[in-house]
């Protein structure tokens, strides 16, 4: 549905988007993840024909964003980060204006407006001035505008930014319910968002795609060979020696005193091996109390930081994903 090839956008000497490529299948929800200033908004603006790309191509539903912008715009519903709304218009009037410029035929307008108002739960504010609405409602008016013409593609730039937790949950539910029917690209710098809503994630940093996978796989990938945390009652010294001798352990780091006579270790295991049973047997067999044994799964949050936080000293952005890539290839 959406195909982006080698997209580059330069502002003078600054490169905001640098050779970004990805594609989105019909009905998919793609999460576009990156820190602020990573180039998410710029990429989305190119896709919505708001900005021209410096290089590369982007196609939406088979239409080139540069060659046939009107065809592309007809198929896209878009909300920028701050929804563009006319504060002095009433919600229903605003949507009526949008329905006209979106080319919805006159006889369908009322029905489509009512549908959008219902879906985004705006019924009780439909005759209020947009300027008097709270941030959450405004975001929903923006969303109502985007889904009004029932477009094939929805592009949502930080749709939950600035909402309260309840509104965030509601918005996520709404977005999820829109998937399948619509192809959605959703940008965010809030990680749980993609974990909850998206089928696939593209992580972008400094204008480059640094990782692309399902949220589960990304977590898996960086979990790597599976670091474990072992907590046992006893002295650090003997336990260290004990754990070191367990076959398959390739790395061992004491993590200090966990309180109540318990010491903790981080254990790196050989690729593909689950050492939990062996470790448990070793600790208990040596007469220590095993208090805790868990996999050190990385949250998307940590992955994100690991991938996007690069040594600015040598600016080695591609290194992090390379490191992330390695365990995955081994595992498969």
């Amino acid at each position: 549905m959406i195909e982006v090839v080698n997209l580059t956008k330069r502002y003078g000497r600054h490169t905001a988007v640098d050779g970004v490529s990805f594609s989105v299948q019909k009905g998919e929800i793609l999460g576009f993840l990156g820190p602020n200033g990573a180039g998410k908004t710029t990429t989305m603006r190119i896709l919505t024909c708001y900005l021209p790309a410096t290089e590369g191509t982007a196609r939406v539903a088979g239409f080139d964003v540069f060659e046939q912008p009107l065809e592309v715009k007809r198929r896209i519903g878009y909300i920028p980060e701050t929804p563009p709304l006319y504060p002095d218009m009433e919600v229903a009037d605003f949507l009526s204006f949008c329905s006209k410029i979106k080319g919805i035929p006159g006889k369908d307008r009322r029905r489509k407006i009512d549908e959008a108002i219902e879906k985004t739960r705006l019924v009780d504010v439909r005759n209020k001035h947009i300027g008097k609405l709270s941030k959450g409602y405004r975001q929903r008016v923006g969303l109502a505008q985007a889904i009004l013409a029932n477009p094939d593609v929805l592009i949502l730039d930080e749709p939950t930014a600035g909402l309260d937790p309840k509104q965030i949950l509601e918005t996520r539910e709404l977005i999820k319910s829109l998937g399948g029917e619509h192809t959605i690209i959703l940008s965010t710098h809030i990680l749980p968002e993609v974990e909850v809503t998206c089928g696939r994630v593209v992580i972008i940093n400094k204008g480059k795609v640094v990782a692309e996978d399902t949220p589960e796989n990304l977590t898996q990938r960086l979990r790597g060979s599976g670091a474990l945390r072992v907590e046992a009652r006893g002295e650090t010294g003997p336990l260290f020696d004990l754990l070191r001798t367990v076959p398959g352990v390739i790395g061992l780091r004491p993590k200090g005193d966990a309180g109540d006579g318990v010491v903790a270790f981080e254990v790196d295991a050989e690729a593909g091996r689950d050492l939990r049973p062996e470790l448990a047997r070793a600790v208990v067999g040596a007469g220590h109390d095993l208090v805790g044994l868990s996999r050190l799964g990385m949250s998307l949050e940590e992955i994100f930081l690991q991938i996007t936080t690069t040594d600015s000293a040598d600016g080695a952005a591609p290194e992090a994903p390379a490191a992330a890539e390695a365990p995955a290839t081994e595992a498969s």
């Binding site: 919505t48 024909c49 708001y50 009107l70 715009k73 007809r74 896209i76 878009y78 920028p80 701050t82 563009p84 709304l85 006319y86 504060p87 949008c98 410029i101 979106k102 080319g103 505008q145």
Partner: peptide
Amino acid sequence: RQGTIELLSTNPLT
């Protein structure tokens, strides 16, 4: 200033 120019230019209008 309102940013609504983005609304106009991302809808099928010339």
